[in-house]
Amino acid sequence: MSDNLQHEDRLFELLARQTDEAGSEGAPSRLKAKLYTSLVQKQQESGRLRTLAETRADGHGLCVFEDLWSRVTSAEGAQSFNCCSVCHARVLAEHWEVAPIYWGHCPYVAFGKK
């Protein structure tokens, strides 16, 4: 390889390093919402989700709907039900960058925070 080409390679490598160091913007909250939805769907494909009772017992907060669902149901199957799949918060978060969701312990709320 000629000296000229080696020199060019070095310049481009330097440029690549500078580009990577320049940083970049974070993921849109809509994408995070979609990622979460698809991951939970994938998890469900290979069996039940962890029950809401177990999640709560482990110290995690439940959103108002999950909390209610966990109180009105008792079977393990029902406790593993993914409330987000029928929740309007999911639909809003997947389509709006700043979705109007305000209640606590909702993952879609957290994704909207910059």
Partner: peptide, 28 residues
Amino acid sequence: ADVLRKDRKATAEFVARYADHVYGYVRR
């Protein structure tokens, strides 16, 4: 470990914590 247990809250944290890094890299 919690994500593997299919804990939905852990899964949400997994996304919240790493989506920005992965997205930034892929976009560049």
